[in-house]
Structure formats: structure tokens, C-alpha cells
Amino acid sequence: MSEVTIRKQAPRGMITLRGDLSVPALGAACAEVNGCDLPARGQAAHAGEAATLWMSSDELLLLLPQADVPDALTRIGAALAGSHHLAVDVSDARTLFSIEGAGLRDVLGKLTPADVSAAAWPPGALRRTRLAQVAAAIWLRTETEAQLICFRSVTDYVEALLHTAAKAGQVGFHRPLR
């Protein structure tokens, strides 16, 4: 019996927002559409199902209910009119997984070269990395719940990877076995 649960999430609305993250209107527009503060470098901000992920120094990924995406794009466009930016609905391009359980650091540690120790990857920190052969972004909502985004085209591959890594037995490297 595995102590880590992998679940593919229902489709979530996702908006890629590129622009100068230091522009106050950009942070305000994000907060207005999904209720999350602008995350600091390498962080993810949460509010229920919504989240704002720091993807690079000029890119954010906004997570929100899928039905809200068209309205959110309109509001972002209005708020940032005149300021150089790009906001695109990428909901169909990516898949969201949740990984729950105390041993999740050991499961992810089998698949990624990133340091997934508590010191390097605390709750709230987002890491874009490689999962076996494909790109993914992982972040911790809490110490026992991680979320993962990958491209939709590799969903089956990532799902199989995660299930295999989770069922192969506990490792006890990041969390001592009792």
C-alpha cells in the first residue's frame, strides 16, 4: 500500500501572462482575476483552487476555474492596456496533477535532478525542472501536498512515471521510515 497518492486533476483554467512583473498594474490585475498575491521569485501563491505561479523573470502562470478564463483575459487586457504584455489562455496545453502523502519528496526525488529536500524546496516554492524525460513544474501547497504541471501531450507518460515511482516502495531518504 503506497502512502503517496497521485491524482490527475480536472481541467483547470490557465493563463500565461508575460510582461514586466515590476509594473504595479500587473500585480493588481493578477490579484483581481484570481485573488492571489504576486509571488516572489521562484514562489507560488495560492487561494483555494486558484494560484499564481512564478515561471520566469517575465512570466506568470495564473490558475483559476476554467469558466472564468475569457472574462479574466478581458480584464487583464483592460488593466494592462498600453503596457507591453501578453496574456494567453493555455488551459488546453497543460495538465495538473496533485501528489499527496508524507513521502512525496522521495517519490519526486526519483524522477527529477532538482533538490527536493525541505531546505531547498519548502512549501510555497515552485521548481520548474525535468521529470525523467519531460519538462514539468512542481510546487508544494503544504508539506504533504504537491502539485505538478506538465504539457498535456505527455500526460500519460507523467502519470505512469508518478505511479511507478510511488508504488515501488518507500525510500525514507527525505523522511525517515518508522
Binding site: 521569485r41 521562484g42 520566469s56 535532478p113 531547498a120 521548481r127 525535468r130
Partner: peptide
């Protein structure tokens, strides 16, 4: 230098 993460050669 942009994200501040320790990136492995394979990333």
C-alpha cells in the same frame, strides 16, 4: 542567475 535555482546539467 534568473531563477536562482541550482540547475543540473541535464536541465
Amino acid at each position: 542567475p534568473y531563477c536562482g535555482v541550482q540547475a543540473d546539467e541535464t536541465e
